Amino acid sequence: MRIGKLLSFLLTSITAGIAAAIVILFLVPGLLQNNKPPEPELNRSDAEEQITRQPGPFSYADAVSIAAPSVVNIFTATITTERQTLRFRDPILQHLFGDSLPEKIRQRRDTSLGSGVIITKDGYLLTNHHVIDGADEIKVVLANGHSVNVSLIGSDEESDVAVLKIDDEPNLPAIPIGDSDTQRVGDVVLAIGNPFGVGQTVTMGIVSATGRTHLGINTFENFIQTDAAINPGNSGGALINARGELIGVNTAIFSKSGGSQGIGFAIPFDLAEGIMRQLIASGQVVRGWLGIQGQDVTEKLAEAFGLHAVEGILVTGVLEDGPGSLADMRPGDVITEVNGVRPHNSHELMQLIANEPPGSVLKVSGWRGNAEFTVDVISQERPPSTR
């Protein structure tokens, strides 16, 4: 009897325990998961909405054959005259007759190389300012090896753009022009130039970034960045898309060794074109100027100066009797708009002002302390670069 009662008690207890466990797990299902975190929800693309990717060409030879005839080699020479006074070895003779000795004149010839791109059939070509800067002689060799005479039409140091004109050569191979504004990161590009003077060379890469500024290369910057190899001698050459159309002028690299390390920069043709047209028309580039200095407003700057918001460009200097000063602009003003356009940084502000011809009235808006202000500023011509 006792054994039967004990078994009955154990069975009753086990049954009650199982029932209680079932009830608890039903009411609190999370206990089955041992407090595991929820599974991540991945943003999987709908197969029907996926972009159809077309395979790229196996060769870019067609693009190169279209653009390569328009890319030229540029050789420059700078002649430096040095004067050397002859001297006697004997100090007594030097003292007595030294002034009667003639001067020895010697000329030193320094050469450099670069590239250029033929833009029009009548011979206008683009290159970089630094390729021809200070040159006493400029020689251009076409892709077919023919040497031609050129004249310098104009050069702009602040954008590093120069325009040359090939003389007496009709029906030159002008390069097709693409739209540099539509380039996207990841687009295939080809760089054509004359690296190290070895001859016309083509390298391939992609657009690594667009709109690169604040690099300290030029005053006005809006570079296309690419990993296509750009080396000394490539400056002024063509950056083309996969259709053989010009989208930029190769200009500079970031390198610790002096050779390509996958970070090259090209001036977008859309920017170079406006400068080219001014240089052809007048031989110089005229830009607007307000005579102010500024820097981007950051959180720390806004906190330090008690600014209204973290936006705009803080005016840090106003040139006395300059356009900004005459319009009562003051250090400490924060500019948020120019002619209704909101610049995102000081570079964009400078570009907005420079794009307006001298004599234009610019409506400048922003904050002065906690109050809004708007002034009309009559721009003047930007002074020559002091870089």
Rank of each mutant, 00 (worst) to 15 (best):
P323Y: 03
F26C: 15
S115G: 10
N345C: 08
G340C: 11
L32P: 00
E39Y: 10
V334R: 07
E372F: 02
I280D: 04
D296N: 05
E157W: 02
S151E: 07
D62E: 14
E320N: 02
D181C: 09
G369K: 11
I3H: 15
Q295G: 12
V188H: 06
P38Q: 13
V150Q: 05
D156H: 11
V361S: 13
F254K: 08
L190W: 02
A20H: 07
I24V: 11
Y60A: 11
L27H: 13
D122M: 14
M350Y: 10
Q200N: 05
G366K: 12
R87I: 01
S346G: 13
I166A: 00
I74H: 10
V188Q: 09
A252V: 03
N73K: 11
G262Q: 01
G359S: 06
P170Q: 01
I105D: 04
I275Q: 07
R243S: 09
H344M: 15
A304I: 05
A174N: 09
G359E: 01
E381I: 09
V338C: 07
T80Q: 11
P55H: 00
R330Y: 03
L314G: 11
I105R: 05
L172M: 05
L42C: 05
L6I: 14
Y124I: 10
N355Y: 13
D328T: 10
Q200F: 00
G114I: 05
G216A: 14
S45E: 15
S151D: 02
Y124D: 10
L142R: 02
H214D: 00
R382L: 14
Q278R: 03
A229N: 08
A252L: 06
N241W: 00
G98E: 08
W289E: 01
A242R: 09
R109D: 15
T203F: 01
R277H: 00
G197I: 08
V28Y: 14
R53S: 13
I378W: 08
D227P: 07
K121V: 08
R212Q: 07
A281W: 09
K5H: 14
F196P: 01
A191F: 04
E82W: 13
Q94R: 12
S147H: 11
I224M: 11
A327N: 10
M329K: 07
Q107K: 15
Q278A: 00
L301F: 04
P38V: 09
L362C: 14
E48C: 02
